[in-house]
Design a protein around this nucleic acid. Structure first.
Lengths: 242, 242
DNA sequence: CGCGGGTTTGAATCATGTCAAGTTAAGTGG
DNA sequence: CCACTTAACTTGACATGATTCAAACCCGCG
């Protein structure tokens, strides 16, 4: 054990207890790279509602999300808005090989970030195929998610959309296996307005569908934000996926 | 020149005239790799309507699309269908690091493919960071496209959806700059049913919106498939993007 | 206590879906 | 060459799910 201490000590203190090192982008880095990146990294907190990445501003930093929920939005010239992605803890935030497509990232809840300056991170990407592979995989995962939501947006009814969204939250909130397999309980990370923007609906419709699910005893809502699902199977049945 | 002949000869005959070598995935390969991949490659044609990649079958080949249009679809258990992506000439078809998400690829028109066996291609991916980077970029591009369509699906009206789709086709059909900047003329690569599946509409609505655009003199349609747009700006205005 | 943001609820309206009937165009076989 | 069939598309009348507009509600906070 003592023999290995040098290496263990080499892991930056901040990273030692960081989940991102195990499951996030950083899992693709070796010790040396981790130290180098950590030197340039900065932990920061953003209030709910804060803009993390705007259409206007140049992107000068990439980041890992340590906690909280980030919404990626697009807006039409006349103000109509659509959330095109949600990112959770340990997701990577940023746009390597930045193409044109204008996209806003906004904190949906309070968010804690571990961010790196653009140049340092891009240099590391060049040098580390493993890192780039890890990023590629995340992009593929996000692509799958985006396509799943296209089905939801294009082909599901309002109730099915809401049920699908609740299931998404349940999946992210649960340490799987922790609560009973068919039970879930979580805080809604989005306001009704945000849910509407994600599902291509209006606030009123979102609200109506929630009360409908409540009336059908599929969910219970406390304090407008805490959702309890006693039987996930019934919720799944309402989500249209089978 | 003679000095270089050896190298030029080394480019596989098939590839020499192939656009994919310049603009597609293959542009990331050096000569040696190109030869190796070409040895394993196979050119093939698929009828319109043929399934290229099914939920059921394992994927045993990757491919470049040489010509034609491929639609990527997802289907809900009750039969509702959504097209979640369109791929055109020189796009890469396949799912490296295949995750779960069930996806169908079907030829929307007659399609010509240049395909490679799974193992050969994956081995090359392992060995060539440049190739993986190229694939990563395509994934990012597809992600951008998917997100653009999420806005269309979630927030646009039926007319705007149709206009947006026509603009997409125009962009892909035109050798840019060839026809006048504000003029376009192209064959619809999708049937009304496919357009409906892409836009989250019904065939009837698609048809009605097309005749509406025709009545407004924004487009002309000949033979049900040939579309002529005399002023792209008017079409853009109807697409909701500005 | 009253104020304000977020949410719920209600009634009227509208866009899109549904169902059904027609049209067009391209075969196919007599 | 002309009926006949068929598939894809268009058009019309009607039904409905979601939006819109408006009002009430709830709850934390000054």
């Amino acid at each position: 054990m003592a023999f290995n201490n040098a290496r263990i000590d080499a892991v930056p203190t901040l990273c030692a207890s960081c989940e991102g090192r195990k499951k996030g982008i950083c899992s693709a880095l070796d010790c040396e790279q981790l130290v180098e990146l950590a030197k340039a990294s900065r932990k920061s907190t953003a209030e709910s509602g804060a803009t993390l990445l705007g259409e206007t501003e140049g992107i000068d930093r990439y980041a890992n999300i340590l906690s909280g929920v980030v919404k990626l939005t697009k807006t039409l010239p006349d103000g109509r808005q659509q959330i095109v992605g949600l990112q959770f803890a340990l997701d990577f935030l940023g746009r390597p090989y930045c193409s044109e497509s204008p996209l806003n990232a906004e904190a949906a809840t309070e968010v804690v970030l571990c961010s790196f300056p653009r140049e340092a991170f891009e240099r590391m990407m060049q040098e580390s195929p493993a890192l780039e592979r890890r990023l590629y995989r995340q992009a593929l995962d996000e692509l799958d998610e985006a396509r799943d939501w296209m089905v939801t947006l294009g082909r599901k009814t309002a109730t099915e959309k809401i049920a699908s969204l609740l299931l998404l939250f349940a999946r992210h909130a649960e340490p799987p296996e922790k609560t009973g397999r068919h039970f879930a309980r979580f805080e809604l990370p989005l306001s009704r307005a945000d849910m509407a923007d994600f599902l291509g609906l209006t606030i009123e419709t979102v609200s109506r569908q929630l009360t409908r699910l409540r009336n059908e005893k599929i969910i219970t809502i406390e304090n407008n934000r805490l959702v309890i699902v006693s039987d996930l199977r019934r919720l799944k049945a309402r989500a249209g996926n089978g």
